[in-house]
Design a binder for these strands. Structure first.
Lengths: 210, 210, 210, 210
DNA sequence: AATGAATGAGAATTCATTCAT
DNA sequence: GATGAATGAATTCTCATTCAT
């Protein structure tokens, strides 16, 4: 096959990444060999190296993709005017959806990947960069929303906005981890708990944007 | 051949584990070689195998140790009568202390280890068992405390107790992860945020046990 | 499918060889990939295989070309009547020119190639054949010239003619090697030394043919 | 086998180098695999890496050893007072011995190695350094000897001493190369030719030190 | 008990060569 | 004819584990 379309190249790359993601989710980065990915993708080992410089580059690409999708699920890509009550509500709704989606088996597989990315971010500088950006962006947006809500009086002014943003993210991370550990886990219970907490914080909070 | 004392064996084992923990925290499980641990511990590679069946066994032992200590820090080892308001307060105080301790560099190193254990628990069944137990025990206790508090009217009865317990744990996990990623992170901000949330939930909550 | 002219094929082949020669001189046979040659020649890897059976065949062709040119520079292709004093002088002059030409950067690049051919000749039978022929032909001619000169009394009769021919060639090979190693090397010094030696051997020797 | 004597380590290293030298002489650096060396040495591939960082390091060590021995054969390690006629004679004798030794099959194998080192020196900086030093040291000594001889009137003053030294070395290199190419080659012929040349240059030259 | 030399299976990566388009 | 995507065998190097001393 000679010169192939840009489109085809993009598809190929995506196929490889998808195969890698499945392998990584199943066995972890370090226990997955290039051969595994080759087999999973139906391609040869050599070809993979035309798309990725090395295994690390694949991990970085996976991490990048992962956080990208995460951000999109939070509807943070186009936050619009984030000083309106609706903006906060919209993000809150996205956030609860994200937690709810953990009930979905497909999402659970994705989360397996996420947890490994988080651990890998501790040791691989490039993954660290990607993971940090993936979390810092949403955190910044949420911090802004919280500030605005505090100014409007929708949230207690005493709470540090950035700390609160971190806590929201932490809740997601921790619940994702627990879900990854236990496929039987009762999703509804913690979603209710989180919604309840948000309600306690700002009555009517969670309905405003849904 | 002089049989060494049981005592000596225990000490040796602990030394090896400590060396391994340092290596693992520094470089991750998979990037740490037995030789690294031998060098770090000042012992020979061969000797390490008299204390641990293989590398995986060391990881399991590390995970075990890690969660043990975690549980102790929460003052859950001797929960006393967990139906009293004080019991909840004591655990809440331990919990906030745990979050505060993340400001300590030594604790941050430990957290590096923790995050890796969490990821490893996804793939290594024995680590999974240990991690699950390490989290399920505190969770059970907290769930009980929340129940009792709800019965006393100290916490809103609508919140699912087990979901809430999971959320508390998730908050710790997520904040620990974020701390592991960013040594510059402002610990006080998220501690204040968490305390604020607890206060909102139950005014006077956090003072009761401190 | 329009059959391309013979002419075109020859040109192509020469282009590929020239590109290969540049690559080989730069990085050595074994460190040069077909892709390198493809890039250097502006052609595709696949096309190169229409002109050469495999990489080894390119090396052989390069070696062939190299020794061809070498022989031509010695004016040995048409030795005329090599029993005249002039024949010896002409070759001697060509020989000194060859040594002088080592001062030329372009020639130094060529020499890099030569040294590699010499080493490759040790292991690759086909290259061996080519290299041997490339050296044996000039050597035979020189041996004949020396014989004739000895008969004329222009050279000491005690010296073995074939041994002397080998020594002349060895001098070139060794100086070429040393030049390849050291681009700063003082060409004039060794040219003078060689000319001096020739003069000592046969006064008037080197002027006779120039 | 635990902690083993320094002696043993040195021996092992030497064994590996010897095995590598045999393989390299037989098949060339690039066609020799680590497995080949392992098989030839009767050791495992892994062990080789306890003695050499990588394959390149072995090549450098081989080159080092090669030139060391070369220098020793020239009796240059202890040149004594190189301003005496005897010094020149001693080195000249060593030089002729070196040429004569090319008749020895064992030496011919060594020369195979030498030629490859020379080629490798063009591309591998560390080998280059070693090879340059290996040649520059003898060259320096010879240049000094020639100077002294010129001052004594034993050699024509017009010849550039350093150029002459280079030529002597070139003669060795070229004859070694030709010998490597042709095991049938008549060693006596070129030795006689070289001795004749030296005699022509300085009558009585080659006897003075033998 | 203790050592660390030795093993060898396995993993990442490269690259000559083929062949569908 | 021409391309360059695709293959997969080969190679280097690592490292958990064993075991002779």
């Amino acid at each position: 096959m000679p010169k192939v379309s840009e489109e085809h190249l993009r598809t190929r790359r995506a196929e490889i990444l998808a195969a890698a993601a499945r392998c990584f989710a199943r066995a972890g980065f370090h226990r997955t060999t290039i051969q595994d990915i080759a087999k999973e993708s139906g391609l040869s080992a050599g070809l993979i190296y035309r798309y990725f410089a090395d295994k690390d580059a694949m991990v970085v690409a996976i991490a990048d993709q992962w956080h990208d999708r995460q951000t999109r699920q939070l509807h943070l890509d186009d936050p619009g005017d984030d000083r309106t009550p609706n903006a906060l509500g919209r993000v809150a709704a996205g956030y609860l959806d994200l937690l709810r989606s953990l009930a979905d088996p497909a999402e659970r597989e994705r989360v397996q990947l996420g947890v490994q990315i988080w651990a890998e971010a501790l040791r691989a500088p490039e993954v660290h960069t990607v993971a940090r950006q993936g979390v810092d962006l949403p955190r910044g947006v949420i911090t802004g929303l919280v500030h605005a809500a505090q100014e409007r009086g929708d949230l207690p002014p005493a709470l540090p906005a950035d700390g609160l943003a971190r806590v929201f993210i932490a809740v997601y991370q921790g619940l994702a981890l627990q879900t990854a550990w236990d496929p039987e886990l009762d999703n509804a219970a913690f979603v209710d708990a989180v919604r309840g907490l948000l309600e306690t914080l700002t009555p009517g909070f969670t309905e405003s944007g849904t």
